[in-house]
């Protein structure tokens, strides 16, 4: 298995205040990695560094063993709020990003996320969950190699979250992108990811390998719950 994304001794500080430091990790190509941890711990900051919208204070980021910095075309990001353009129709929102995509491709993607019947609607008419699905379609239309998800389901209700988690996994299995998911919901992380990193005390304190859990992940199994407990302990414990 090749390494797609690697961080070496990453540090980010604002005005002298350090958010994260000594961050080292590797993400295998085609895997999903989740970052969990307390609020404000730096998970989103780490994601923003990977996205390229912010620069690291120190350290390196590599993709396929090549150093990179700045926003890259092979990476797409999803936010907690959909950030759709309210003045464009759903289908035009999906097409926003890529001139080469055709509306057929856009419709195809909307079908994948189950929203092709709303393609002519405006975002205002959609529920939160539906808006996030459009955001997913928009993120995937250019077939990115790396998909970053910054607490994408945080604003949704429990039932919608469950469905969306499944959708993300389905799309991941279909499109085979490499994913980094930031979430405060440990169960969500365990449901979706191959590996879970705990961001604690300005660094990555612990890595949890979840590949022994079969997919589709069943949250009722004791093995699942055990991992969740361990992660929670790591977050809150020390």
């Amino acid at each position: 298995m090749s390494t797609f994304l690697e961080a070496k001794n990453l540090k980010k500080a604002y005005n002298g205040r350090t958010i994260i430091d000594h961050v080292n990790f590797k993400v295998e190509t085609g895997s999903i990695v989740a970052l969990v941890g307390k609020s404000g711990g730096g998970k989103s900051t780490l994601l923003r560094l990977i996205s390229g919208i912010e620069e690291a204070t120190a350290g390196e980021l590599l993709k396929k063993d090549q150093k990179f910095s700045g926003i890259q075309a092979d990476t797409r990001i999803m936010f907690q709020n959909g950030r759709l353009l309210p003045w464009e129709k759903v289908i035009d929102n999906v097409l926003l990003v890529n001139d080469q995509s055709t509306s057929q491709q856009a419709m195809g993607l909307l079908k994948e996320v189950g929203l092709d019947h709303l393609s002519e609607s405006y975002p205002n008419a959609l529920s939160g969950g539906e808006q996030q699905r459009v955001a997913l379609a928009r993120a995937l239309i250019t077939q990115p190699e790396l998909l970053l998800l910054d607490e994408p389901l945080g604003a949704l209700d429990a039932l919608t979250r469950r469905n969306m988690q499944q959708l993300i996994v389905d799309l991941w299995q279909r499109f085979k992108f490499t994913g980094v998911l930031v979430t405060h919901d440990v169960e969500e992380a365990v449901k979706v990811a191959d590996e879970v990193y705990v961001v604690n005390r300005e660094t990555l304190s612990e890595k949890f390998d979840l590949r022994h859990l079969d997919r589709p992940r069943d949250s009722t199994t004791p093995a699942f719950q055990k991992v969740v407990k361990e992660i929670l302990h790591d977050i809150t414990g020390d």
Binding site: S51, G52, I71, A73, I77, F79, R83, V97
Partner: peptide
């Protein structure tokens, strides 16, 4: 920011 990240 979304526009920037999507490299518009």
């Amino acid at each position: 920011e979304m526009g920037q990240l999507y490299q518009l």
